[in-house]
Design a protein around this nucleic acid. Structure first.
Lengths: 229, 229
DNA sequence: TAGATTGTTAATCGATTAACAATC
DNA sequence: TAGATTGTTAATCGATTAACAATC
């Protein structure tokens, strides 16, 4: 859909070429490692870490190998080192400015989501069209009119935008985000957004997730001979 | 993590063996097709449908071929036929009873999500631990105490549960769901749930999605030589 | 018939897994 | 040294893509 898989480049040390499937799991590893650190653990084996993250040890080691060699044979991995390396890979050391457009229940939930700051993001603004909402305080931020988006996005250097509007509004919002210089979009609206190829869109869709579960559920039923449909 | 990929079986007509990647896209196709039907379109080519769904035509045709041959060469697909076939595959004709546990902002947003009924689901109950919330009306349902979960789940034959609680409560909730006979779980809490192998868990994680976007964003910056980190 | 488009084949690409040599 | 565990290799598996024969 977009340029999610790029060539990869060598910046001297070693860089580029982390497979997409691995990238998708790095946030999980990072979270699990932070939990372990909080629990006072300072060394883990790939077996133990894999079990905690719910993946196979081989997969975990392969994934980590793309970042470099940060383990000690016969010993395991130092939790703090791994947190730092994965964090660097994900850009958690940076503070990505993020805006949320659409402050219904979902926007509310997202705005109040605690993990933002600890994971390298800074929520800089909330936007909504509804005059009743504009001016209201949510998660320590005042909801601004949608028309303020361009100036705020430019001023704060926002590159990541979250679309939490109803489906009907999502494409217009996406257009406005792109026009304002945002080139990474997380879309919660149940529509396929049309954006320039340089813009990266990820879609999170409740109904799809449920339907995938239902598909497997149905299969299990079929296999047991329960449901004929 | 679970038995998401099963052997597949032949039930005479043709059945089983729809690849996991294809299953993941069927809800998208279904939604796009319903939108087309609403717009009065009754025939589409794979090229047009693929463009609307944001996938390649070859991939779309391959995906559809796993369900059977429902197109007409030289003409395209009848929208209504495709909707019906994909719907059947996903079990949309059934009415899967679903419960949501945790009625914070996210639970609220999910409960009010319109797509439930039109996609083969029936929201049968909302649960929360908070006595202030219990008894409150949300989306036409009265929030029930979490302790009611077993009786409701059994009575309604619930097999799909949504976890929308804070991270700290999620594992306990999952245990209770499993004990109550639920074997498909959609988890919005940022923790890895431990469940028996027979239970299918899907995790939706805002922070992970943002971090994946940030990773690509960072890569683009690196490539342009903008960010040193 | 001529043009269009499906359904399928074969080739390619990427991800996963198992196994084990390297090494702490 | 002996035991443990990483990092990597090679094999397998699954997904994607391109191309085109079948056929409406």
């Amino acid at each position: 859909m977009t340029d999610r898989a790029d060539a990869g480049r060598d910046l001297g040390v070693r860089r580029g070429g982390v497979p997409e499937a691995t990238v998708g799991r790095l946030p999980l590893y990072h979270r699990v490692l932070v939990d372990l650190a909080d629990a006072g653990v300072d060394t883990v084996s790939s077996d133990a870490l894999a079990a905690t993250a719910g993946v196979s040890p081989a997969k975990l080691r392969k994934d980590l190998s793309f970042l470099g060699s940060y383990g000690t044979r016969g010993v395991g991995y130092e939790v703090s080192v791994l947190i730092e390396q994965i964090g660097a890979e994900l850009g958690i050391s940076s503070e990505w400015p993020v805006v949320i457009v659409g402050v219904g229940h979902l926007g509310h939930a997202l705005a109040n989501y605690g993990g933002f700051t600890s994971r390298g993001f800074r929520l800089v603004a909330l936007f909504d069209e509804d005059p009743e909402l504009v001016g209201t305080d949510v998660a320590g931020l005042v909801i601004r009119p949608f028309t303020d988006l361009p100036s705020v996005a430019r001023a704060e250097g926002v590159t990541i935008g979250v679309v939490a509007t109803p489906a009907a509004a999502a494409q217009d919002v996406a257009d406005a985000l792109v026009a304002a210089g945002v080139n990474s979009v997380l879309n919660f609206a149940p529509v396929v957004l049309t954006v320039p190829p340089s813009v990266d869109v990820r879609r999170v869709d409740l109904a799809s997730e449920l339907q995938i579960l239902a598909f497997h559920q149905q299969r299990r039923g079929d296999e047991l001979g329960q449901v004929a449909r």
